[in-house]
């Protein structure tokens, strides 16, 4: 009988979880739709005429210009253009790049792996170094090591990625010659070798942020009475830190991690340009410069989509970290 009750409750809880997950997915779709509208309209309002770019270097007659405008649909009313674009996007067609004479999807696909590698390596560095330094900073508070962590956090948070990029390039790239200073590299090892300095430049600020959040979350949890209870039961300090301090401190760390995603993707524009890498970030700079609106739209939408997806995942992971989240109706 108890067993049945238990199963019934689990089913109800599962249903509730499925419903809230469905709600989140719907919210995600709405967010992306609204974003697509904002992205499209903001570029529509931006100064500069794409038709002018297409005929750059020539002096077309007004008729020719009108033909181009008509071909590309530049004269259609705004809602029509938005609808055409949105329809295309929903079918995976982001339009054509004026700059590369390729479909936007092809352009992005050729640039995406480099950026994913950069962001992936940076994320790993941020997670390992940021969380690690945060833990050390919390456990060694008041000692020389703890103060050193705090100092590095302050310095790290104050260094913009372009400054970090310049310093790293000149020091480890040019002077010491340990790392290449430009390009993406070919082959797995060479690519990794090329991505080390950019990844460090990209992660410094975010590392400092994660360290700070980890440290303060750990300190909050260390003060909890259940930590003292666990110690009073003879559990080794290391075990208590792992099971009752770090696990409980994960909530804020994961939340901040989710918020960092957009910042990192935007910063790739600076870092990739600084290191002459060919990725989404440098592509964005290039296309904004050359008024290649189709590509810019696709990249901005991609960044927003990545942000929304990651933060939806964070929301879905939260109840696993802290069972008090999101069980208001279900499991009681």
């Amino acid at each position: 009988m108890h067993r049945e009750m238990h199963r019934g409750m689990t089913a109800a809880a599962a249903l509730g979880a499925a419903r809230s997950a469905a709600g989140r997915l719907l919210g995600m779709a709405v967010t992306l739709l609204v974003t697509s509208f904002l992205v499209f309209s903001s570029l529509y309002l931006a100064p500069g005429d794409p038709a002018g770019f297409l005929v750059k270097g020539r002096s077309p007659s007004p008729q020719e210009l009108a033909t181009i405008r008509q071909q590309y649909g530049f004269d259609d009313p705004f809602p029509v253009r938005y609808w055409h674009w949105l329809e295309g996007v929903l079918h995976g067609d982001f339009g054509r790049s004026y700059l590369f004479h390729q479909s936007v999807a092809e352009v992005l696909a050729s640039r995406l792996p480099a950026t994913l590698l950069l962001v992936g390596v940076s994320t790993l560095m941020i997670a390992v170094v940021g969380i690690g330094a945060g833990i050390v900073g919390a456990l060694r508070r008041g000692t020389r090591t703890g103060s050193a962590v705090l100092l590095l956090v302050t310095v790290g948070a104050a260094v913009p990625s372009f400054v970090a990029a310049i310093v790293l390039r000149s020091l480890f790239g040019v002077n010491l010659g340990w790392f290449p200073t430009i390009g993406n590299g070919t082959g797995v090892l060479d690519r990794l070798h090329h991505v080390v300095l950019p990844a460090i430049a990209l992660s410094v600020t975010f590392m400092a942020l994660v360290t700070r959040v980890t440290r303060s979350a750990m300190l909050d949890e260390l003060r909890r009475e259940h930590v003292e209870v666990a110690l009073s039961r003879g559990l080794p300090r290391r075990t208590v830190i792992r099971r009752h301090v770090l696990c409980n401190a994960l909530g804020p760390i994961v939340t901040v991690g989710g918020l960092l995603v957009s910042g990192m993707l935007v910063s790739t524009a600076i870092v990739e340009t600084a290191f002459g890498m060919s990725g989404i970030g440098s592509l964005l700079v290039q296309c904004v410069d050359q008024l290649d609106f189709q590509v810019v739209q696709a990249i901005v939408l991609l960044v927003v989509a990545a942000f929304v997806v990651v933060n939806t995942l964070v929301d879905l992971v939260h109840p696993l970290i802290d069972p008090r989240v999101g069980t208001a109706g279900g499991a009681r």
């Binding site: 909890r224 009475e225 259940h226 003292e228 209870v229 666990a230 099971r243 009752h244 696990c247 409980n248 970290i321 802290d322 069972p323 008090r324």
Partner: peptide, 12 residues
């Protein structure tokens, strides 16, 4: 301990 709500890890 005095307060079981504070003395037992809430996430386990």
């Amino acid at each position: 301990f005095q307060d079981p709500r504070a003395g037992i890890n809430p996430v386990r």
